[in-house]
Write a protein that binds this DNA or RNA. Structure first.
Lengths: 229, 229
DNA sequence: CAAATTTCTGTACGCTGTGCAATTAATGTA
DNA sequence: TACATTAATTGCACAGCGTACAGAAATTTG
């Protein structure tokens, strides 16, 4: 059986553990935005000299990768694959969960998109999506394409929302963000952009749960049309 | 009539023009990636001291915003709204154009997503999309939501593709990127991720024109289902 | 106790954005 | 022509970043 106690290595003891580095990074991410996730900031958070971080990760990109993995690992994949509820509802639940989780740390999605998502949790998420979409009646190839489409949709929507948030703040509530957008849209000259002006109310609500769910539903409609059931 | 010659201002003459600053930034973006788009790099490119750039833009974010505007302004919106071809084809053409243009400078999409897209060219793009989708038979509110969905889809797909490119290089050809992905997928343990392993060929082709077009078609299917025609 | 090994620290280099004061170059007025 | 006014540019400086290198500290093995 796997013995928990490591085989008593030789040199000096480690002051922290790798997961504490990740935890410190996420603490900074939540408190002061993506730019605050710096080697020096993490080291200060842990009470270490900056260089000590390089004992645990080879460079900053590796730390960010571990943070991304941690964030992706928080999603409940069991709920995604359980067949108690219709598959569309399960995907909706996952997407909503991801959105709230990632918008809770504005800038987190920047980290997601700053490197390839090839860790175990990313793979597990893809695998679970494949299972759901196979359930939905898609052939393997179509299920794979649809899973990527969904990832694109979810991360794209979150990225666009995050793009208009000044990163350090703890993300104002949606109602306030919509109000800000509506205010800015009042400055759009109606003679140059008549349709934009006419649809200003809807456009102001692009950053809302409703728009997010609407877009996801259109994507799911398109996917459902490919099911052979 | 509007007189071209500016009314002979008082102080020292400007060494460059604002659009030359943007051009220098784009030159750097293409040659050395998004990280090279720095105030100091731009200044060196123009033969100026770094601070001189602040004569033309208040801070780096403003320069990036101008670069984004320039990139968005290169798209042919006239072709998007002309009714010679079916609306789906027109959107396909726009999406393809945007993808190739943005992937030509890997990291460009990072700039796009680093701030709100509220410039005139961004507005014009939105307005043109609204026109196309109204043509397609959508009510104004639905057209607005669908236009945002399309922007999310296009930028999301490009962002995910760019995420796995090491930014400075001039973007290897698609075939090579697919081959790299296929190679990496061979390391995925089949017993943990059976469906992923089975669909590896399709997954390797996530970064391809075909997947991009497929996803766009599913989104358009979903949108078309809302047309009242 | 000494040797070996690992981790942590001190220092340093080159890079970033950008604020402040002084300089340079152009124009308007006397 | 001389001077004042104004705008653009520069030099310098500061604080921050990632990270490479050498040495000190801590811990286990012989």
């Amino acid at each position: 059986m796997a013995q928990d106690t490591p085989p008593a290595k030789r040199g000096r003891k480690r002051a922290v553990r790798e997961d504490e580095v990740v935890a410190a990074a996420i603490r900074l991410l939540g408190a002061r935005g993506a730019d605050a996730v710096s080697i020096r900031g993490i080291a200060a958070e842990l009470g270490l000299a900056p260089n000590a971080v390089y004992t645990y990760f080879p460079d900053r990109a590796a730390v960010v990768g571990a943070v991304v993995e941690h964030l992706l690992g928080q999603t409940d994949l069991a709920a995604l694959t359980s067949r108690d509820t219709p598959w569309r509802d399960r995907i909706h639940a996952l997407a909503t969960d991801l959105r709230h989780r990632l918008l809770a740390h504005p800038g987190a999605v920047h980290l997601l998109l700053s490197g390839p998502m090839d860790g175990p949790h990313a793979l597990a998420l893809g695998e679970a999506l494949l299972a759901v979409l196979t359930d939905a009646g898609l052939a393997p190839t179509e299920a794979a394409r649809a899973s990527y489409l969904l990832i694109v949709q979810v991360l794209g929507a979150i990225a666009l929302e995050a793009a208009e948030l000044p990163s350090p703040d703890p993300a104002p509530p949606i109602a306030e963000r919509v109000a800000t957008r509506r205010e800015q849209l009042r400055a759009v000259p109606a003679h140059l952009y008549p349709r934009t002006t006419e649809a200003a109310d809807t456009i102001a609500q692009f950053v809302s749960d409703e728009q997010y769910a609407w877009g996801l539903d259109r994507v799911l409609d398109g996917i459902e049309g490919r099911a052979k059931d």
